[in-house]
Amino acid sequence: VSFKITLTSDPRLPYKVLSVPESTPFTAVLKFAAEEFKVPAATSAIITNDGIGINPAQTAGNVFLKHGSELRII
């Protein structure tokens, strides 16, 4: 599955597209996205474009099915 993750704390709204296997734990996606944007993973969260928080204790495939591919990291 592929996710387009936007960094909301930067006024330029940079984004990265990450492709991972469906079975990947979403905690790993969060950690990798945080490292890519050089923000601390421990204090970061991934939310939907509607501002709904995503529980990272599920697979990337589940997140994709529930929330789609466009996400934000805060």
Rank of each mutant, 00 (worst) to 15 (best):
V29A: 02
F37N: 02
R72W: 01
K4F: 03
V29Q: 00
S23A: 10
K4T: 10
P14S: 11
A60K: 00
G68N: 03
G61H: 13
T24A: 07
T59D: 09
A41H: 07
P56A: 11
R72K: 15
S23Y: 08
T8M: 04
T59S: 11
I73F: 15
V17D: 08
I5S: 00
E35D: 13
L7Y: 12
F64K: 09
I52K: 14
F64I: 06
V20R: 01
P40T: 05
V17F: 05
E35I: 06
S23C: 11
K38I: 05
I73W: 03
V29S: 00
G53N: 12
P56Q: 14
A57Y: 09
T27A: 07
P25Q: 14
P21T: 13
K16V: 14
Q58K: 08
S44L: 15
A45M: 12
T6A: 10
K4P: 00
K31H: 13
E35R: 09
A33K: 00
G68W: 00
K66H: 10
V17T: 02
V17Q: 15
L13A: 07
V39F: 05
T6D: 03
I5M: 11
T59V: 09
T59C: 08
D50W: 03
F32V: 05
L18M: 14
A33F: 09
K31T: 13
I74R: 15
V63N: 01
G68V: 01
D10T: 05
F3I: 00
I74H: 10
A42P: 02
E36S: 12
G61P: 00
A45W: 02
I54C: 02
T59I: 10
N62L: 10
T6P: 02
G61D: 06
T6V: 08
H67N: 06
D50C: 07
E36M: 11
F64C: 03
S9A: 11
L71V: 00
G61R: 10
E35F: 08
A42M: 08
L30P: 00
N49W: 07
K66V: 11
H67Q: 06
N49M: 07
E35W: 04
L30S: 15
S23M: 13
I5P: 00
Q58A: 09
V29H: 03
D50E: 07
F26I: 15
P56G: 15
A45G: 13
A60M: 02
A28H: 15
V63K: 01
